[in-house]
C-alpha cells in the first residue's frame, strides 16, 4: 500500500498545505525530543526545504537543502551502480556535529543534525519511527484531491509576478 502510494507521489508534485505541515512539524518535534538531536530539516528531492524544527536559525537552510538533495541523489546513483535500489540512510560524522539523512516515502529527505549529547543509535532508532509516521502523512497528502479552502495561488499572481520580475531584473 505504502509502496504504491509512494510511486504515485514520485510521479506527482507535492503541494504542502498548512494542516499537513503542522502534522509533519509535530512528528519532527517529537523526534527531536526523544532522540536528543538538535535540529531537523525536511527537504524534498529537488532540494527545497519543506519544513524545519529545532535550532535552525543559524543554518543556511536553502544551501544546506540543495547540498543534501544533491548528496542524496549522488548516493542513489552509487547504490544503483552497486545493484542496490537506494541507500535509505546516510550519515556524515564530524568532530562535534553530525548529520543523518533519512529517505522518507521516496520523496523527501529528513536531515537530522545532532552532536555528542546523544548517540547515532538513538537518532537512528527514533528516525525510523518518525519515518513511518511521516510516511503515513505523505500517503494522506498524495491521496488528497482537493485543496483546503483558502489555500490556492492568488488570482493576481501573474500580475504580481511581472512587477516582481521587473523589481529584481529591471524593467
Amino acid at each position: 500500500m505504502i509502496g504504491k502510494n509512494s510511486e504515485q507521489m514520485r510521479e506527482t508534485r507535492l503541494v504542502f498545505y498548512r494542516d499537513d505541515v503542522d502534522r509533519i512539524n509535530d512528528v519532527l518535534e517529537e523526534f527531536l525530543k526523544l532522540s536528543g538531536a538538535k535540529a531537523n530539516i525536511l527537504i524534498d528531492k529537488e532540494g527545497h526545504a519543506v519544513t524545519q524544527a529545532g535550532l535552525t536559525s543559524s543554518l543556511n537552510v536553502d544551501t544546506l537543502s540543495a547540498l543534501v538533495a544533491a548528496s542524496f541523489a549522488a548516493t542513489r546513483e552509487m547504490a544503483r551502480l552497486l545493484g542496490e535500489e537506494e541507500f535509505t540512510i546516510l550519515s556524515h560524522q564530524g568532530k562535534n556535529d553530525h548529520i543523518q539523512l533519512t529517505l522518507i516515502a521516496d520523496r523527501c529527505i529528513l536531515c537530522t543534525m545532532f552532536d555528542d549529547s546523544t548517540t547515532v543509535g538513538m537518532v537512528r532508532l527514533y528516525a525510523a519511527e518518525a519515518s513511518k509516521k511521516l510516511h503515513r502523512i505523505f500517503d494522506t497528502i498524495a491521496r488528497r484531491t482537493e485543496a483546503p479552502a483558502g489555500e490556492s495561488i492568488a488570482a493576481d499572481f501573474g500580475d504580481q509576478a511581472e512587477s516582481a520580475l521587473d523589481d529584481v531584473f529591471g524593467a
Partner: peptide, 24 residues
Amino acid sequence: FPTLKKLSAMVLAKLNKEYGVGSR
C-alpha cells in the same frame, strides 16, 4: 538578466496556469 528574466516569467506563467486562478 534578460535571459533569466524571460525564463523566470515562463516558469511562473506555467505555475500560474497550473495552479493559479489568474487566467480566469
